[in-house]
Design a protein around this nucleic acid. Structure first.
Lengths: 233, 233
DNA sequence: CCGCGGCCTTTTGTTGCGCCATCTTCGTCC
DNA sequence: GGACGAAGATGGCGCAACAAAAGGCCGCGG
């Protein structure tokens, strides 16, 4: 499947990058492979675009191929089936979200409070910078059929992020000497808020770009840990 | 499949006797029409069931008919097309929600605070009592194609409920002498929370039946209007 | 007993996925 | 350095699934 190509890409990336250096080692970088990988990426991008704009039902292999500017057989060649293509798309998006999360939440040297703020940022930035990606997530996770794919790829990460955030809240509560804070309800609320914002903004894009999500999350955090989170103005 | 149907119909006609006493109150209603209406309802129910369980993509006219125990032509007969059927389904669900909203929010003699609490109740009850209906809403509003249907039937009501809730909050704020409350952010947050809960519980049913939605909505209301809303314990 | 309305079967035309035969382009081996 | 082989790409086709239309049947009510 698609993983083979990712693996091959690593091998190439190791040395082909600085290949400008004169005539050393005659770089055997396979231009066929490069072309193929570029095609794979273009197909994934086109699929995201189409799904975000039109939904799953009306997306066909030929429409994707058409959008890419190739024949449908090329799509079938790279991803053996439609389901495989969708799986690759979701994996791609999941990886992009993970990158952002790692940068904003798991960056070394951050305090738990900073990490929590990073998580808030993560949710908001992702939705603002890549509304189409969010749409694809929503579409995939709604239809039960494609939900099988989401259950395999998206949901586990999703639950992991929630759990990680929950641990952060516990740590803040403990080290801050707070008692009587209902962590489970709080973290679940934040989860609802994030997904609600994503979902609602997908179905009613005009409400995007307000600061409601961030404000409310900070409000809840402030209400629970007043000494550690400032209210937004 | 269809043979059973004909047989059942036959039996039904003969059975009208032993159901009630011989000369039961002269039915002024056309029994054919009754049967037809029952079919319509059964088809709608089956469609809801199927969409909630499998998503839009894999639902076909024949699967619906099969689930109802009739031929696909019967479905086509009652609703002229698939799109029309879906429209009827969404209209049906929208009507059910409206009934609940009218009962809980617009009941005569309620104070604004009671109405607001009614709105909270409405969102929670609907999700608890009819998870499949919520699933259908989510499915319809996710796929852009069927979103055209949702935009016509579901979204206007949705926006109306949000607007009505917002008016309630304004009224409470005014009559309660509150100043500096950001009504727009508050009502939008509550909206996010409701849709987030519906969406998340649809894609991760195990988290249903907690009280998080209600608790958090009341928390936000209490935070804005402390003299009018008690916290849950 | 007759006509109509609800119900069903069969048919038709369309669409989409996946595969095959073929072609091109590029590394590699002798 | 020239031919072979493999990866990448193309067009088209077969099979299956689907929505929808055309037409016939049957029981019910008048």
């Amino acid at each position: 499947m698609a993983q083979q190509k990712a693996a091959a890409a690593k091998r190439k990336g190791a040395m082909a990058k600085d290949g400008v250096s004169a005539n050393d080692a005659a770089p055997p970088k396979d231009r066929r492979r490069e072309r193929g990988e570029a095609s794979v990426q273009r197909i994934i991008d086109a699929t995201i675009e189409l799904i975000a704009e039109e939904g799953l039902a009306s997306v066909t292999m030929q429409r994707i191929a058409e959008h890419v500017g190739s024949s449908n057989a090329l799509v079938v060649f790279h991803f053996r089936s439609k389901e495989n293509l969708f799986r690759a798309v979701l994996q791609y998006l999941s990886d992009r979200y993970d990158e952002l999360w790692v940068t904003l939440v798991r960056a070394p040297g951050l305090s738990p409070v900073e990490r929590a703020l990073g998580a808030v940022d993560c949710a908001q930035r992702f939705a603002r910078q890549h509304p189409k990606w969010v749409s694809v997530f929503v579409v995939f996770s709604s239809d039960r059929k494609s939900m099988q794919i989401y259950d395999e790829i998206g949901l586990p990460s999703d639950l992991a992020y929630t759990a990680e955030a929950r641990e952060l809240l516990i740590e803040i509560s403990r080290s801050g000497g707070y008692t009587g804070v209902d962590i489970d309800t709080l973290s679940e609320s934040l989860n609802y808020l994030v997904h609600g914002a994503w979902y609602w903004d997908h179905l009613n894009p005009s409400s995007r770009d307000t600061n409601v999500l961030r404000k409310t999350m900070l409000l809840l955090l402030h209400q629970a840990f007043p000494r550690h989170f400032e209210l937004m103005r």
